[in-house]
């Protein structure tokens, strides 16, 4: 992909993680709401094409505008921003039925990214769909802050590892392509057995050891590859501590720096208000999760770790 230069002051955050139903959209909407409350000008972008429901978290049942116009009529993204009932926060709906997310062309994708980066907002937050489709990963990678949402269960952990490994692989591939080494990553990966490479970490180590020039590039470019981990729907201290274990494994096995930024308790008020199509965000301060959302956002902004219970 061509190098995209930023012409904005704001930050792009992306919320992903692989597994469906972990609370990505809930986190996107409540994180956005808190930032807006703090006075930031926020635009949320629903990139869950085909499964878009971000608008319903704001009590909007049928958004008048959506990305459909972007894909079909070439409308400009900034014209598709829809206001919410809250101050400082608006959204772009991904409610698109005419096009499947894997049918998005390469040039549409580039155009979309360019326009996302030009959105007039201090904070753009992108809600990604489930899965590890390369379009999802590429969207994840344009963000300044990459946030993964996890729930404390094995499948979610498995999907998240998959999601992060593939993001990293794509990041390495794209980076080296930008520097003119188009084929090398895939070439080595396809022959990984004969190189004795078993995983992405070993691939990166191999590249760094074999080509010092590439090593310099990767050290430089991967420095920004940092994941913010959010554990959602936690019910006890063990659930909370799981985040610390995952952080450890990601660092030791994948070499991926990761920040355990926060956790959100399981709280019936969340799904109830969504089901009843009440704009949860309007009164979210009344629920138990609000404090945790605030801590999460502050940690992400400051690059801080969440503090864990029980002296860890």
């Amino acid at each position: 992909m061509a190098q995209t230069t930023k012409v904005r002051e704001g930050e792009i955050w992306a919320v992903g993680g692989g597994k469906g139903g972990t609370g990505k959209t809930f986190i996107t909407s409540s994180v956005g709401t808190y930032l807006a409350k703090k006075g930031k000008n926020v635009v949320l972008v629903d990139m869950d094409i085909g499964g878009a429901n971000l608008h319903s978290f704001f009590g909007i049942s049928r958004p008048q505008k959506s990305l459909t116009s972007f894909f079909e009529m070439g409308a400009s993204l900034s014209d598709l921003v829809v206001k919410t009932e809250l101050d400082n926060i608006s959204l772009i709906s991904g409610d698109v039925h005419s096009i499947a997310s894997d049918k998005i062309t390469f040039s549409q994708k580039l155009k979309l990214f360019r326009q996302i980066m030009k959105l007039n907002a201090q904070n753009v937050i992108i809600d990604l769909g489930a899965g590890s489709h390369y379009n999802t990963l590429d969207t994840f990678l344009i963000a300044d802050r990459m946030i993964v949402v996890l729930v404390p269960e094995v499948i979610a952990i498995e999907n998240m590892y998959h999601f992060i490994k593939n993001s990293l692989f794509r990041k390495v591939k794209k980076t080296l392509k930008e520097y003119g080494f188009k084929e090398i990553v895939q070439h080595i990966w396809d022959r990984r057995q004969s190189y004795g490479i078993n995983n992405i970490k070993e691939l990166i180590d191999y590249l760094k050891d074999s080509f010092s020039y590439i090593g310099t590039i990767l050290d430089h470019e991967l420095a920004a590859f940092k994941i913010h981990l959010v554990l959602n729907m936690v019910r006890n201290n063990n659930d909370i501590l799981l985040g610390a274990s995952i952080k450890s494994v990601m660092m030791k096995y994948l070499g991926v720096p990761i920040q355990y930024s926060g956790y959100i308790e399981y709280n019936d008020a969340v799904w109830k208000s969504v089901r009843e199509r009440k704009p949860f965000m309007l009164n979210y301060l009344a629920t138990g999760c609000a404090k945790e959302i605030e801590v999460l956002v502050d940690n992400i902004v400051k690059g801080r770790e969440v503090s864990l219970p029980g002296g860890y």
Binding site: E158, Y161, N198, N199, A244, S248, V249, Y253, Y312
Partner: peptide, 25 residues
């Protein structure tokens, strides 16, 4: 504390390690 915590993770099949099983020996 850190030692005890990490030892637990890497001592057996903890649910954070199992999903990586195949790629990491």
């Amino acid at each position: 504390n850190s030692f005890m915590r990490l030892k637990k993770i890497y001592s057996g099949d903890s649910i954070v390690l199992a999903p990586l099983g195949e790629e990491f020996s």
